[in-house]
Computed example of a mutant assay.
Amino acid sequence: MKAALFLFILFIISATPAFAADGSPAGEANTARIAELYSDLESFDVTLYSTQPEENLSLEALLVSSEGTHEKTLDRQVLLAGSLPANIRATKVGFWNVSNPERGSYTLRARLLEGKQVISEAEYNFAYGSNSASRLQVNDLVPNSQGMSVALSPKEASLFDIEYMLVNGSDVVYTTRTEKLSLTSTPDVFSALWGTLLENNKEYVGRVKIQVYSPQREFISSTERFTARNDAEITDIYEDETGASATVFGRSQVPFEGDLVFSVYELAGASGNGNSGLVESTRARVPVLLNNDDETVEVAWSQRLSEGVYRLEIELLGNDGDIIERRETIIQSDLSPVSNVSQVNDSDNGTVTPDENDEDGVPGFPSVAGITGLIVVSVFLRRIRS
C-alpha cells in the first residue's frame, strides 16, 4: 500500500512541470507580426499574420531616402489594421505622396502597433532609377467592374507570376494569382476577373504585382483607380404580334438589378415611315445578374396587334434608372380584323361570344331554335282543331 501511494505522489510531482512547459511557449508565440512587405515610389503593401485574433492594431509606414549616412523621411502613412483573424494573412496597401523623386536608395520601414507599443517591425530596401532595368515593362493597366487587364512587354524572355489585387481603401478585399507565365519577344495582355461582389458607384484600386525570378527575384507593381458600375447588355431579342422577349447578359461584379421597358408604336403609312403613336408600354424586372450571367425576360401584349407595321423599342435600365442600352426593331402583323370572327361583349358575364346575326354567314343558334319552336306550336294547334 505504501509503495502504491509513493508511486502516485511521484507521478503527480513529475507531471506538473510538463504541463507548465507546454503552455508557456504557446502563449509567447501567439502574437501578430509583419510577414512580408514591398514598396516602390508609387505604393507599398504589408502582409500581416497572427496566430490568434487581434483587435485595434495600426500600421505605421515610413518612406526614407538614404544618401550615405544621411537619411530623410519623405512620407509617413498610418493605416488602421483593424481586426486580424487567426491564421489568415491580411494585406494592407498604402500610396506614397512623393513629387519629383530622385535616383537613389530608399527604404520602407513598417511598424505594427498596439496603441503605442511596437509589436513587430520590418524594413524593405529598394532602388529607384538604377541602371539595372527590369526584364519586363508594364505598358498599360485597365481595371474595371469585371476584372483587370495588364499589357506587358519583355526586354528579354522571362518567366513570371502576376498577383491581381482589388483594393478598397487600404484593404486588399480580393486577390488572385497566376503563376509560371512567360513572354519571349512580343508584348501580350494578361487578365483576371474579380471573384467578389462590388458596390455600385464606389471607387476601388486595381493593382498588379509581378514577380520575375531571374537573374534575381524582383517585383514590379502598378496601380489604377476605377469606379465600379452595374453593367449589362441586350444580346438577343424576339418579337411578334403577341409579345416580345429580350436576353440580358451581365458584365459587372456589381449585382445588376435593373428593368426592361418594352414600348410598341404604330407606324403611320403603308411603308411604315410615318409618325408613330404609342400603342402599349410594359416594364419588367430583370433577375439579378453578375458578370457572365444571362437571363431572358418575356412580356405579352394586352391584346394581339392588328394588321400593320409597328416599331418596338426596348430600353435596358440600370440600378439607378439610367438607360444603359436601347434597341429598336420592327413588328409586322398580318392579323386582319376583317378576317376575324366579329365579336361582341356579353353584358351578363363580360365574355366575348360570336355575333348571332352575321349577314354573310349561317344564322346563329338562337334564330334556328326560334323557327323550330314556331313549327312545333303550329303542328300542335292543327292537331287540336282536327
Rank of each mutant, 00 (worst) to 15 (best):
G129M: 03
S50N: 09
N230C: 00
F380S: 15
D140T: 09
E307R: 15
A86R: 13
Y204K: 02
E298Y: 14
N273C: 08
S214G: 04
V46R: 01
I371Q: 07
K116N: 15
R225T: 06
S276G: 10
L112N: 02
S120D: 12
V205Q: 15
V205A: 07
S182L: 01
L374A: 15
W194G: 01
T175H: 09
E298G: 13
N144C: 00
T186P: 07
V286W: 03
S185F: 02
Y238K: 12
P53E: 13
L193K: 08
L7G: 15
V264P: 02
A86G: 11
S182M: 08
Y106E: 12
K155C: 02
V279A: 02
L136V: 06
S83P: 13
S378C: 06
I88N: 08
G68L: 08
S170I: 01
N139G: 03
A369K: 13
N319H: 00
L108R: 01
L197F: 11
F95H: 00
T329H: 05
G321I: 00
L317A: 07
F219T: 04
N349M: 04
S149A: 14
G147S: 01
K202I: 10
R111M: 05
E67A: 05
S342M: 09
G272D: 00
L63M: 12
E67H: 07
R327E: 14
F126I: 06
R76H: 13
K116C: 07
D360A: 13
S245E: 08
G129Y: 03
L317P: 03
R33T: 05
F6H: 10
F256E: 01
S271A: 15
V208Y: 09
N56H: 14
W96D: 02
T31H: 10
P215D: 08
A232E: 00
G115F: 05
T235A: 07
V254C: 01
A3F: 12
A127W: 14
N139S: 00
H70D: 12
S66C: 05
S214H: 07
L141Q: 02
Q343N: 07
D320L: 01
D236V: 08
I162K: 07
F160Q: 04
G104S: 03
A90C: 05
